Simulated assay, not measured.
Amino acid sequence: MNHPEGAVTDEVPGVAPRLRDLRRDRGLTLETAAGRAGLSPAHLSRLETGRRQPSLPMLLGLARIYGTTVSALLGEVPPERDAIVRGGPLGASEADGWRYRQAGGSGRAMQALRVRVPYGTEGDLVRVHPGEEWLYVLEGRLRVALGETLHDLGPGDSAHFDSLTPHRIASLDRSGAQLLFVHTLLQSSAAELCLGNGIHRL
Results as ranks from 00 to 15, higher is better:
89 P>R: 11
150 L>K: 13
161 F>G: 08
197 N>I: 08
47 L>A: 06
49 T>W: 03
81 R>L: 06
48 E>W: 12
107 G>Q: 07
188 S>D: 13
152 D>C: 05
18 R>H: 05
201 R>Q: 12
90 L>A: 14
108 R>Y: 10
26 R>L: 10
195 L>K: 07
142 L>W: 04
153 L>H: 03
1 M>S: 15
72 A>R: 15
160 H>W: 07
8 V>P: 09
195 L>S: 11
195 L>G: 10
44 L>C: 03
119 Y>K: 02
25 D>F: 06
49 T>P: 04
97 G>K: 01
114 R>C: 01
186 L>A: 11
5 E>F: 03
70 V>R: 00
193 L>S: 08
127 R>I: 10
53 Q>A: 13
16 A>T: 13
58 M>F: 00
89 P>V: 08
177 A>S: 12
142 L>Q: 03
80 E>T: 13
163 S>V: 00
83 A>P: 15
31 E>R: 13
72 A>V: 09
44 L>V: 03
86 R>E: 10
122 E>D: 15
161 F>P: 08
118 P>D: 11
177 A>F: 04
33 A>H: 11
26 R>G: 02
73 L>S: 06
75 G>S: 14
89 P>H: 06
151 H>Y: 15
124 D>F: 00
169 I>G: 13
86 R>V: 11
28 L>G: 05
133 E>K: 13
163 S>K: 01
95 A>S: 14
166 P>C: 12
114 R>G: 05
70 V>H: 02
12 V>S: 09
124 D>Y: 02
104 G>A: 13
143 R>W: 05
191 A>T: 09
178 Q>R: 14
165 T>N: 09
136 Y>V: 12
105 G>I: 03
38 G>E: 14
196 G>W: 06
93 S>K: 06
62 L>C: 01
132 E>F: 00
133 E>N: 03
20 R>T: 09
14 G>L: 07
64 R>C: 06
78 P>E: 06
120 G>T: 04
166 P>A: 10
140 G>S: 12
53 Q>S: 15
193 L>Q: 11
132 E>C: 00
100 Y>Q: 13
145 A>D: 15
15 V>Q: 04
118 P>T: 11
95 A>I: 08
88 G>Y: 06
9 T>Y: 03
6 G>R: 12
187 Q>V: 12
18 R>G: 05
146 L>D: 05
9 T>H: 10
122 E>A: 15
126 V>F: 14
28 L>H: 08
78 P>Y: 07
42 A>P: 05
183 H>V: 04
16 A>K: 12
